[in-house]
Simulated scan of single mutants.
Amino acid sequence: MNIDELKQKAVQIRMDVLRMIHHAKTGHTGSSLSNTDILTALYYKVMRVDASRPKWEERDRFIASKGHAVESLYCILADRGFFPKEELATFSRYGSRLIGHPNNKVPGVEMNTGALGHGLSIAVGMAKAAKMDGRPYRVYTLMGDGEQAEGSVWEAAMAGAHYKLDNLIGIIDRNKLQISGSTEEVMGLEPLEDKWATFGWHVVAVNGNDMAELVEALQAAPQAAGKPTLIMAYTTKGKGVSFAENVPHWHHHVPSDAELNLAMDELTQHMREIAGGRV
């Protein structure tokens, strides 16, 4: 896909996310909208994955450390053909495998995640295994910025640098909001880029809602031999829906019928703008 096609795909995924959460009457709306561009760049442009072979040994691995924002991941996996799109209607229903955090019974999901702070540790182990086995795959993990207050993140950061895991790419969805408010009010993180660099990572800062910047940064990794890469993706929580953007309440707010209709109208207009009025 070219950049405009990726932008259109991200809009479609946002629409799918909102419909799924509205139907289920539960979900983490703001977080999934903020990370949609990141996941779209990964799954439609950057990562080597094959829906017909979800356990292909040479596949790139993705760990959703920010596990509560699973809705966008499920929608993308369904769109890529890992499981039928009709199954999205079962999200968070009794007996469904599409539960509220990543579930490795779902094709394309590598690990159960959700306890914040664990994803990077898992990714370090996978990247180390690839080095030991001489395999070419890369390991990507998406973390939340509120998650950076977890001590296990920094233990894993040290290990990734110590073992020179340049096949490891960490991404932080830096939307500066968490469930209880601003990250800087809850637990100050800055200077976050400098901290990761001090821990031995090659740090790249991008606009995490700019598809061209994301693709360029992800495709260029690693830029420093022998160093893991940390992509600081500055995003907007609730991105794509004007009345949800940067509103803490939308962390896990379920859109009403009226809000869903308004959001669909906004996203449809955005799709038209990307396509030059042809949609």
Rank of each mutant, 00 (worst) to 15 (best):
D133G: 10
F83E: 00
N112Q: 06
Y137N: 05
A127G: 07
L165T: 15
K105H: 14
E110Q: 06
E87Y: 02
V109N: 01
A156W: 00
D145L: 08
E87D: 06
T90Y: 05
P107K: 04
D145Q: 11
G95V: 06
M111R: 12
P136D: 09
E155K: 01
D145M: 09
N104A: 12
P84F: 01
L165G: 07
G81A: 00
Y94F: 13
E147H: 11
H118F: 08
P107I: 03
P136L: 08
F82Y: 03
A123H: 10
D145R: 10
G114W: 06
A157I: 00
S96W: 11
K85M: 04
V124S: 12
G117L: 10
A156K: 01
E110N: 02
V139G: 02
V153C: 04
T141G: 09
M126D: 15
R97N: 13
N112H: 08
V109I: 07
R93D: 13
H162D: 12
E150K: 05
L142A: 08
A89E: 11
A161Y: 12
V106E: 03
Y140E: 06
S152I: 00
V109Y: 00
G125W: 03
P84T: 02
P107M: 04
W154R: 01
I122W: 04
L120M: 14
A161F: 08
Q148N: 14
I122M: 09
L98H: 14
N104S: 14
A161T: 11
G119Y: 07
G119T: 15
P102V: 13
M143L: 15
Y163I: 15
K131L: 03
M158I: 01
G151W: 00
Q148Y: 09
